[in-house]
Design a protein around this nucleic acid. Structure first.
Lengths: 230, 230
DNA sequence: GATCCAAAGGTTGCATACAATTCCGACGTC
DNA sequence: GACGTCGGAATTGTATGCAACCTTTGGATC
C-alpha cells in the first residue's frame, strides 16, 4: 500500500527494485502490521538471515525506515522498532489533519471526472463492506479513498508526506476494533465527504476530512491513554 | 517519539554520529548550497574518494537523501542530484504553507514566555540585518525565527516534516536576490507575525505565515518560469 | 551484600572484494 | 549511411572480513 518509489513519480520499473528497497518494504510491512513488536530489537545478522539477504542491504533499509521514523537507530547499539506512544500518535494526527485540510481545498479544483467516478465506486465498495461488517475490506476501501483524494491533488510532495505519516498511523490501527456507533458515524462522514467533493466545495470538504481523521483517532488515543504507555 | 536525529540541531553526541549520517549532512549542504549542481551525476567511487570515506556509508547517505527527495536514485544507474523544477517548488510550497498555517494555530497556545522573548530577539536581529541590508544575516535570522516558531509548537513530527521540505526550498534561495520592495514587504509581514504571536491570535498568525511564505516564493517562481526549465 | 573493574563475547561500523548490470563503441549487415 | 548487435569497460549491487564499540559476566574489593 505504500510508495511506488522515492518521492514522486510513477511506479515504473518495479521489477528492478534493489534488495534494500524490497527489504525496507518488507520490514515496513512487518512493523506496521505489528509482526515486529514496538521496541523490539533488530539484530542485523539475525534479521538478515531471516530475510535471506546480507547485512549490507539490510542496513540501508534500516536507514530508510529510521528516516521515516519507524525504526530507532542508536549508534553502535543497533536498531529497534520505534515504540508506540500516545504523544507520537497525537502529534502525527495533528500534521495529517493539516494535510487533509489542504487536500480538501486543492482537490476540488484539480480532480478529473474519471477520478471522481473511481472514488464514488470505492465509496460504494466501502458501503458494501460496511453492510457486511467486513472490517478488513472496509479498511482497504477507506484507505483507497483517502489516497485517491490525495492523488487527485496532483501534488507528489503532499502525497509522499501523507504516505509517510500514514504508515505511522497504521501501526495503531490493529488496536482499533471500531465501536459500532463510531463505525456508523465514520460512514456518515464519508457520505459527507463524497457530497462535498461532488459539489466541489473545498472548504466544507477540508473541514469534514480533518474532523473525520480526528474522530478516527480519538478512540485509539483513549485506549492508549487508559492502557499501555509505551 | 520521533527522530531526534533528522538533521535536527541539538548536536549532542556529535562525535558519535555515524559516518553515513555525517556524509548525508555534508552532501545535503553541498546540494542545498548548489555546490553539487541539479541533475549532476554522483558517481560512488569518485564521491567516496572526495569525502574520504568508502562506498558503503556513502550509499547509505544516498538512500537517506533520496528519501528526502534531494537525490534521485535509479537502479543500476546511480545517483543524481534531483533537478530543480517550478513544479516541485510550487508543490512543496503548497504543503509548507499548510504546515505554517497549522503552526500558527498551534503555537499561540503552546509557546512559553522565554521562547517568545527569544523570537522577539531574533526579530530585532533580523531588523538589524535589514537596516544594514545584510542579506546573509537577514536570511539566518529569518530562518531562525520560522524554526523557533515551529519548535515552540512542541510537535516533533511537524518540525521534522517542515525541516525536510525547507531543505528543498533552500535550494532555490540562492536565486532569490530579494527585490528592495519585496524585502520591505517581508519585514512588514514579520512585524505582523510578531504582533499576532504576542497577541496569541492563532488564526491571524496562521493566515499571515501562509501569506508570507507564498510571497517569499513568488519571485522565485516567476524567475523560474521565465528562465530555465528542467 | 553491594559496587566497581576487567576481560570475553557479541554486535555494529566501515572497508574491501566479488558479482551483476548498464553504458559505449566497434563492427557487421541491410 | 543507418540501424542493430555484440563485446569490453565502467559502475552499481551485494556479500564478506576486520576493527571498534558496547554489553555482560565474573570476580575482587570495600
Amino acid at each position: 500500500m505504500r510508495m511506488e518509489s522515492g518521492r514522486g513519480e510513477t511506479a515504473t520499473a518495479t521489477s528492478r527494485r534493489s534488495l534494500s528497497e524490497r527489504a525496507a518494504d518488507h520490514l515496513r510491512e512487518l512493523i506496521v502490521e505489528g509482526e515486529l513488536a514496538p521496541g523490539e530489537r533488530l539484530g542485523e545478522t539475525a534479521l538478515a538471515t531471516r530475510l535471506g539477504i546480507s547485512r549490507t542491504p539490510l542496513r540501508e533499509a534500516f536507514r530508510l525506515l529510521a528516516r521515516e521514523g519507524l525504526v530507532l537507530l542508536e549508534p553502535h547499539r543497533g536498531a529497534r522498532v520505534a515504540p508506540l506512544s500516545l504523544e507520537e500518535l497525537e502529534r502525527t494526527v495533528e500534521v495529517m489533519a493539516a494535510l487533509e485540510r489542504l487536500a480538501g481545498r486543492l482537490v476540488v479544483s484539480r480532480i478529473e471526472e474519471e477520478e471522481l467516478r473511481e472514488i464514488e465506486a470505492l465509496h460504494y465498495d466501502m458501503l458494501s463492506a460496511y453492510a457486511r461488517r467486513d472490517l478488513h475490506r472496509y479498511f482497504r476501501a477507506n484507505q483507497a479513498i483517502h489516497f485517491a483524494i490525495m492523488r487527485a491533488c496532483r501534488n507528489p510532495v503532499l502525497l509522499d508526506t501523507y504516505e509517510g505519516l500514514n504508515a505511522h498511523i497504521r501501526r495503531y490501527r490493529y488496536m482499533a476494533n471500531l465501536a459500532p456507533e463510531r463505525w456508523r458515524e465514520a460512514v456518515a462522514e464519508h457520505e459527507e465527504i463524497l457530497r462535498h467533493l461532488k459539489a466541489r466545495d473545498g472548504e466544507a470538504l477540508a473541514a469534514t476530512l480533518a474532523r473525520h481523521l480526528e474522530h478516527k483517532v480519538q478512540p485509539l488515543a483513549r485506549r492508549l491513554r487508559d492502557g499501555e504507555g509505551t
